[in-house]
Design a protein around this nucleic acid. Structure first.
Lengths: 199, 199, 199, 199
DNA sequence: AATGAATGAGGATTCATTCAT
DNA sequence: CATGAATGAATCCTCATTCAT
């Protein structure tokens, strides 16, 4: 029982791992079930024991990609200095995105979202979380008088998220882009948007 | 002769217009030639008198989308005040993107680029142009002492472009987003990154 | 009137010439009307003023190819020496076949014949003519006591025709084959099958 | 496992058998995948489990047709009397060709070869084998002083092959032709080209 | 659980032919 | 006579999904 459950989960993961590689290479639409089956050395039919649809695999991948980002958010959200926290969210987010070929996957997800309810919902849930963290940090920055009180926090968090999405797009179009070099410039610019931690 | 040429161009445009609508609704991959044919009330075969591939239609749409942006860039590039110019590029870019359902189309293009050479080349050419304009404006800002001399212009222009890409992604995931409201916040933030046009 | 008729015939020939080139390159099935139209710099529709079907073009080409062979036959049939005549038929036939890229065309015709009544009829008519000439020569050879009286003339003429067909097949599979070198061997062998022009 | 492999091979054969019948009736180009599918009572898609292309089916048929000829060659090549061997090669070759509707298939193959690399290669390999056998027999005939020492063996083997190709062409144009009747004439003629097995 | 054969609709593309201009 | 746009059925091939084994 326990063993069989363990096996189930392992097998499921093997499928996901294989699917992820395929999706990165050929996109959601460009990848067929047969390709995934071959990549994880199973049969096509067997995959359907673990996922009811192809789309369920896509959703699972989306979930996974998203869930890898969440602990980063939580860790950073409690940073003593809210501005440091914000900069950290952006920098860690960028690092996660630019790891391996994640950008391609993120891009695929972003493009799929408009026409795929399941994916869209995952995206929106994640956006809510991310923007929640960002807005909480921004509010703390206001309280700490590092940010003007009349700042539109919603708008600001929106643009910060857009910055991450934009990085995804940039990376996926120009995969050779070295984000680490330009990160410092971004971090500096963001910091400069806040008042110094005044005496 | 002249009439037939005119007819050809009109028909070509009808195909593109129909394709555009279909692509917005169902994406490049989700749209079949039959759907396009029906949408412009021709036969499938006839479309092939105007475009050699489905991909040629995709490329033509990409070209068109991109070329609508170029005059905006040129107009703005010569703005007397470089900071105003930069803000204008961003704001006008956003307006163009958010027009009707353009964001979806842009998104589709961004997602297609990594795996479609023809599209990628159009994108890269456009990026070059856009970043050229941005960097020229940034350089003028440095010369006008509105920006620190040690600013990494390449990095900065990259992030500005990413901001636009990010807006596309945001809009395509949340089509109901009202960008106009948040635009002012962005414009203000950008302006504040530059020193006042000091006396 | 006369002029327009002349023009008609010229145009018809232009189509045939173009079609011939296309058929040699891509075969009957591999050549589209559009390709022929482009090759003779007309419109597709215009070709249909001169030929009711694509198949009519194929038939016309077949006719032409065949009719080029006929005068050769007639000229040779009256040769004083029947054995010389036979050898000449074969050698001239081979020369005609191997001229330019005729073998490909002949081959295309042979392959089309089984499934194309119009072509088959042309082929059979030609075969009748050719075998008639051959059998007449063989009969004269018998009369001249150059050939055993019990020879099966029908069978012999059949195998001589097969030899020509075979040469077509060989040339079309190995286009670089140099038939002229091996011709002499064939001619010698054939001659040796007959008794010397005895005293 | 063993069963499934057996099933696979059986199914593959069923496809080939059906394809063969279709090809004989309508030619390679005239036969669609749908027709083959119907002829072996499967779906179109399923055929693609057994063959990657339509062309792979064509090649498999070509292989099969050719490989049926090879054992004949081997058996005959070791004939004690080289002239008997040669006559046998031709006669058995003819019998194989004239079996049922093989001629049509051979013809189709010959016509396809010039424009289909895979087919051409099979044809050329077969030609090499066949001409190898023929030349070996001819050489032995020379050694046995049954043939003039200055005979051009290459040319002679070429014409013998052409004779077989020609028979194919004849049969495919005139399917009612009764080759068996004329075979004796051919065999006799060939024999007479050699000197008697002199004492 | 695992296999992979089978399905059949749907994918893009081609092409002979027609017909309005 | 000439054009080439239009048609639409037919081409090969792909693919998510089902199902008997």
């Amino acid at each position: 029982m326990a063993t069989s459950l363990k096996h189930r989960l392992e097998q499921r993961d093997r499928v996901l791992l294989a699917a992820r590689r395929c999706f990165i290479r050929h996109g959601f639409h460009g990848t067929g079930m047969a390709e995934i089956a071959k990549a994880c050395r199973t049969s096509v039919g067997n995959i359907y024991h673990y996922f009811p649809h192809k789309n369920a695999i896509v959703k699972a991948i989306t979930d996974e990609v998203r869930s890898r980002m969440l602990p980063i958010l939580r860790r950073v959200a409690d940073n003593a200095d809210p501005v440091d926290g914000l900069v950290q969210v952006i920098l860690l987010g960028l690092r996660e995105i630019s790891t391996s070929t994640n950008a391609r996957l993120w891009m695929e997800i972003l493009a799929e979202a408009p026409r795929n309810r399941a994916i869209r919902e995952v995206c929106m849930a994640f956006d809510r979380d991310l923007r929640g963290v960002l807005e909480r940090l921004l509010r703390r920055a206001v309280e700490a008088r590092r940010l003007r009180a009349d700042t539109d926090l919603g708008a600001t968090s929106l643009w910060l998220v857009a910055l991450l999405d934009g990085a995804i797009a940039r990376l996926s179009v120009e995969p050779d882009l070295d984000l680490t070099r330009t990160q410092q410039t971004l971090a500096g610019t963001i910091r400069r948007c806040f008042k110094a931690n005044g005496a």
